[in-house]
Amino acid sequence: MVFRGEIFLILLASSSQDDLYRWERGVHSLATVFCSTNLDSVRDELVRGKPQILLLDHDLPKLDGPDGIAGLMKLNPETKFIVLSHSISDEIEWALFRTGVRGCCRSTIEPEQLKAVVEAVQHGELWIRRSLSWRLLNELVIMTQEKNRIKRAVGELLANLTRREYEIATLVGNGESNKQIARRLAITERTVKAHLTEVFRKLDVADRLKLALIVKGSVSTNDATQTGHS
């Protein structure tokens, strides 16, 4: 693995000397390796050493599962986390991935296999069990469905506007002020306001921020209304 102008660092974190020894054997040829045996040391190394990869024992004392790992990630968002464990449920493992962990494997993994995991993760791959991958795809599909639903709803809403109203709504979506819109369209600010009043009425929104969100396709009118009430 070659990184021009930078030293590739891997941080190993476990309270088990046996695990650290075995992991180190697997990855020592890839990078400079540091070891931590407690959480405080992991925090320090993440901030100071900025390792590219962290191999983290899920059983490290005081780690506190996915929440604790999320806290560690904030210390150096660039570090890719690989969590090693003796036995965790599918739910916890999935929660780790949702936190942003890039790989999960057994603490007892063979050194050569661990090397393959690190190389894969370093190249942007996700080391996830096939039996969990359907959850990942399912989440993407649900997310896409929701986006499509909003897109359709926004399309239907905007179709109710006149050409001029649509033009002005789009400019509001781009963040332009009434003055800028008036200048751009060679009309008075008063006319812009009149058109906007009609746009707000047709889309049932109260202000230009919500209008901008709708035009950008981020939310449907119902979602925008709910946002306003929250």
Binding site: H123, G124, E125, I128, S131, S133, L136, L137
Partner: peptide, 10 residues
Amino acid sequence: EIWATRKMLG
């Protein structure tokens, strides 16, 4: 299950 590369899963 799904059939995709680890890179695509990433």
